[in-house]
Amino acid sequence: MRRMRVAAVCGAAVATAVGGAVPGAWAVGRPQADLAYHGSADMVAGQVDVRFTPHNHGPGAVPDSMVRIGWSQPLADGQTLPVGCAREGERAVLCRTGALGADAVGERIGLRVRLQGAPSEVLLEFETVASDGAVDQDRVDERQRVLVLDTGDTYYF
């Protein structure tokens, strides 16, 4: 009986940490938010410029949040990133988006990265990784993808 209780508690802790298997069950009593990212990206000779603005479509405020920008190609070494952004491994950058009120637009974030080699395309993926206690029951718009071709054209998302 004790083993079953320990397993149930561990399972509940894991479900809480990763979003749970039962939608909304882990969100009881926590503020609700709906985070999304809108912006543009372009690439020339393996250098990618990304500009985006975080949006909180509510209904609750988010005291602080962070977005992961994943790259389908490895980043070159020696990147200079803006304040509030840090490299995470070979293919990702984390950026703090800060506090976002309900139905509010955050500050624009812009970064320029170099990719290893000179790929003809890169797939960017934006995903909220921390929202300081707020939860989003509809996480579809928190995970966005944009394919950027090495043409110098601007791609909007």
Results as ranks from 00 to 15, higher is better:
30 R>F: 11
156 Y>E: 10
76 A>Y: 09
68 R>I: 06
1 M>R: 15
99 A>T: 09
33 A>D: 03
32 Q>Y: 09
57 H>D: 03
129 V>Y: 15
87 R>Y: 11
31 P>W: 08
139 R>P: 00
141 D>F: 10
99 A>H: 14
93 V>G: 10
33 A>K: 08
9 V>N: 08
94 L>Q: 15
18 V>M: 14
94 L>P: 02
23 P>Q: 10
127 E>N: 14
43 M>P: 03
94 L>E: 13
126 F>Q: 04
61 A>E: 11
79 Q>H: 14
86 A>H: 07
61 A>N: 11
65 S>R: 09
86 A>V: 05
152 G>S: 11
143 R>L: 10
145 R>H: 15
47 Q>K: 12
44 V>I: 08
95 C>S: 03
147 L>F: 10
58 G>D: 03
80 T>K: 05
128 T>Q: 03
132 D>T: 07
137 Q>D: 01
74 P>V: 02
85 C>F: 05
138 D>A: 04
152 G>H: 06
81 L>I: 02
12 A>K: 07
27 A>G: 08
28 V>T: 07
157 F>A: 01
104 A>K: 10
35 L>N: 02
67 V>N: 06
120 S>R: 08
128 T>C: 00
127 E>Q: 12
112 R>F: 00
57 H>Q: 07
26 W>R: 12
152 G>W: 11
139 R>D: 04
121 E>N: 13
152 G>C: 13
46 G>V: 01
21 A>K: 03
25 A>Q: 03
156 Y>K: 09
14 V>D: 15
100 L>P: 08
11 G>L: 13
77 D>E: 15
1 M>E: 15
136 D>H: 03
131 S>D: 11
50 V>K: 02
20 G>V: 01
43 M>H: 14
14 V>I: 14
149 L>Y: 11
155 Y>T: 05
87 R>A: 14
105 V>W: 14
124 L>T: 02
156 Y>W: 02
48 V>Y: 01
2 R>Q: 09
48 V>F: 05
40 S>F: 04
3 R>G: 14
100 L>G: 11
48 V>H: 05
73 Q>S: 12
7 A>E: 14
11 G>E: 14
68 R>N: 11
132 D>G: 05
131 S>K: 05
74 P>S: 12
55 H>Y: 08
101 G>L: 13
102 A>L: 14
71 W>G: 00
136 D>C: 01
15 A>C: 07
82 P>H: 03
87 R>S: 13
16 T>A: 04
142 E>W: 00
88 E>L: 04
43 M>A: 13
76 A>P: 12
7 A>T: 06
157 F>Q: 02
36 A>L: 09
106 G>V: 01
142 E>R: 00
68 R>Q: 13
133 G>C: 10
83 V>P: 02
10 C>W: 13
80 T>E: 13
23 P>Y: 07
105 V>H: 10
